[in-house]
Structures are given as structure tokens and as C-alpha cells.
Design a binder for these strands. Structure first.
Lengths: 141, 141
DNA sequence: TGTAATTCCTCTAGTCACTAGAGGTTCAAG
DNA sequence: CTTGAACCTCTAGTGACTAGAGGAATTACA
């Protein structure tokens, strides 16, 4: 049986966050001591590790909840787990592409103004002038 | 003079978001018609474009506000603008590295389970087992 | 000029995933 | 048995919006 602090130390999830997950129903309500403190078994530890891992991978809590509900699932239900993982992967790749475009632009903006300060600063100018973008990010939902 | 809807169409910033920016002090309070509707001049349009651009680049509103306050700045004040751009660039690069690591792992997780469904699904398994991570993301603040 | 559709107004509350703080109780070590 | 760390509940705040209610103004067209 572990205290909430021990769970926190073992998983890297902060104490208030563990309570938050309990509130949200992602973690089952644990046993309590006579003095009303939470005591967790190893099952809870695993479950929390699962949540942590999913969060690290960028999954929203709703997806994690869905995956959690598939524990021990067989056959077609497993497809849902795949679907979540695949969807997440697609998202991730898009985010990377997007960020790399922005990196190019930020680099340009920053470099344009190194050295002399005589002219209007490129940073301020570039931010104001959307047309000057190299990678066009003008059309975004 | 432009209505709020026109501003929205021209910048791609949603109408409620424009009002939100006004509330936050990022956009000055515009003139109003006799019927209390907002009317913007081209200055506001430019300013909103600046904000939009900054947001697209991932800047938080506080940074954008700082940049906005540097409009027309000279000499050393410009360094602050650079500093913001550079800091943002560093952040951005870290995020990209992080995401690429996760991409590797998600790809692995997803691929491990394609085909047969006889075994315990790799997605569920992998999420539960942090130790199996290739790119270690165990230590995160 | 009338009317109908569209756009606009303010306001409150909700989203996501936490985080911070107040004010108080329980536990473990010495 | 005392002290200090860890725990408890609860409320409110964060960032950057988004949604919806309920109503007023504007615009287009007949």
C-alpha cells in the first residue's frame, strides 16, 4: 500500500494531479486509512503509469480514458486502441511539420536584425507583415 | 472603417477572439457607431495582424504585448524584441526534438501490433510499460 | 418604406489539464 | 509525546479562447 506522495515519487505525477485524475474518474477511488488518507495498491500504480505515459505521448485525457476502458479487450475492440494511436501519430507529424515551418521563419526574423540597429527592427517589422512569411501559415482554421 | 466581422474576415481571427483581445488590452477600444457597434481603422487592422502573426509563431499573448509596446522603439529597447524572438526559437527547437522522439515511439507502438490480434495488444501494453520506451521521456518536470 | 436576414452587442459559463493557496488534520520518526 | 512533514478538502486561477443566451442594430432587397 502506497501513500499519494509515494505514488507521486514513483510516477513523476504531482500529488494534486493524482487527486485531479481521481476526480475525473481516471483513477478509481482508493482505500482510506482511519485518518482519511489515500492508500493505493500496485494496480493503481500501474494505471497511473499508463496515464502518465499517455500524457507524455500527447494523448488527451479522454483518449487515455478510452484506452483504459479497453484493458483486456479482444479482437475488434483492439482496433479502437490502434485507431487512437494512429490518429495521434498523424497529429504529431502535422505538428512537427508546422513547427519546422515556424522555425525557419523565426530564424529568418531573428537573423535579419543581428548587428546594426539603425533600421526598423526586423522582428517588429516581420511580425507586422504577414505577407513576408516564407512558409505560409496564413490559412489556419 | 471596418466592422468587427470584416476585421475577422481580413485577418482570420474569429470575432469573439477579437473582442477577447480588446478585453485583454491587446487591441485599443475602437470607435462605436450610434448603435454601439465597433468600427476599426487600418491601424487596428495592422495591429491585429501583428497579433495573429505572433500567435501563429507560438508566442504567448504576454510576449506579443511586450513586442507591441516596443513599436517604434530604438536602440537598446530593440534588444528586448530580439530576446523574445530568440527565446521563442529555442523553445520551438526543444519542442520539435521532443515531438520527434515521441513520433519514434508512437510509430513503434503502432507498428508492433499490426496484423494479428492474438497477443496482448502492443498499444495497450506499451502505454502501460514505461520501461519499454526507446526515447526516454521519464524525467519531465 | 417595410421586413427579413445577417451581423452585431453583452454577459456568463465552459474547455483542457492542471496549479496554487488557504486552513486544517494525520502520520512517522525520534 | 512532540514536532515536522505529509496529508486532507475546497475554492479559485491559468492561457487562450469557445459556446450560448437573449436581445439590438444594420443591410439587402422588394
Amino acid at each position: 500500500m502506497h501513500s499519494i506522495g509515494e505514488l507521486s515519487r514513483r510516477t513523476g505525477v504531482k500529488v494534486p494531479t493524482i487527486r485531479f485524475y481521481e476526480d475525473k474518474g481516471l483513477l478509481p477511488k482508493p482505500h482510506r486509512t482511519a485518518g482519511n488518507q489515500r492508500r493505493y495498491d500496485d494496480g493503481a500504480l500501474n494505471r497511473l503509469q499508463f496515464i502518465r505515459h499517455g500524457r507524455d505521448l500527447g494523448l488527451p485525457l479522454t483518449d487515455i480514458e478510452a484506452l483504459l476502458s479497453l484493458e483486456g479487450a479482444q479482437g475488434p475492440d483492439l482496433d479502437r486502441a490502434h485507431e487512437i494511436a494512429e490518429r495521434q501519430l498523424i497529429d504529431l507529424r502535422q505538428r512537427i511539420v508546422q513547427l519546422r515551418r515556424l522555425e525557419v521563419e523565426l530564424t529568418r526574423i531573428s537573423a535579419d536584425c543581428d548587428g546594426t540597429h539603425d533600421h526598423v527592427c526586423a522582428v517588429l517589422h516581420a511580425f507586422g507583415n504577414h505577407n513576408a512569411c516564407l512558409g505560409s501559415h496564413a490559412a489556419k482554421s
